[in-house]
Write a protein that binds this DNA or RNA. Sequence first.
DNA 1: ATTACTGCAAATACTTTGCATACCG
DNA 2: CGGTATGCAAAGTATTTGCAGTAAT
Lengths: 134, 134
Amino acid sequence: MKNYDNAIKMLKQKGIRPSFIRVRILSLLMNARIHPTVDEIYEVLSKEILTLSKTTVYNTLKLFTEYELAQALNIEGNELRYEAARGFHGHFKCQSCDSIYDLNVEKIDFIDDMDGFIIADEQVLVTGVCPKCH
Amino acid sequence: MKNYDNAIKMLKQKGIRPSFIRVRILSLLMNARIHPTVDEIYEVLSKEILTLSKTTVYNTLKLFTEYELAQALNIEGNELRYEAARGFHGHFKCQSCDSIYDLNVEKIDFIDDMDGFIIADEQVLVTGVCPKCH
DNA sequence: ATTACTGCAAATACTTTGCATACCG
DNA sequence: CGGTATGCAAAGTATTTGCAGTAAT
């Protein structure tokens, strides 16, 4: 329950109606500091929301992405992961256990002259082996 | 023709038999400095290699990735792009025209202590609008 | 009543797998 | 010949779309 209020507040701020499902999905993203796939979100929430459909999860995440409440991450080539929007940070993916860690990194240091380029987003993905796996 | 020799040489160095198709795919990646999808590679090469199948393109790229001749890029969530292996660099993706630019960037500056993490690869993806699109 | 939200089913897109055929040493 | 490379068809997985039913204002 604890974070529902927070999620409701954020949805209202963006002018999105805080339906039950939206609140639950946003709370999930904000609480857990996880980077779930659509499938993982669906698996967790469909246990409580028995009528939930994957289409709705897709719709909701798309909506959140448009309103910058969530961000899609290209971690695997073949599926999208999502996380709640928050400050700039990177990700570390363990190629052994597939865990994903958040990473505090400095902003990108461009060598090229970026004049004329409008930068909207920066993503950093580091791959390797995490401490638990060696 | 010019780069076939180069591609053949690289394949031999890795102990991979330089079949015609492999040479063509590797040359394509090395010459054009592009970041094609499997589909784009297939479209280009199937005009000359009429019997080419996508499976072979997939197989070949997988092989190249294992031998570090090519690298898969997570640019879109739903498809893989490939580029010839070369030094560390980032990518800029224009959200208007979908062009992908190579970017010279400094190595990631970690704020976290990365002790215990073995870093195998770093990817930087910047999204925004390129000079041609505004 | 009108608009927005949800969900099913089908369609599309990308990639992998199993197996058969063709090629090369 | 024997092993590797290629390719077709089918299966698997991820995502999108069209439309209909439902809920909210």
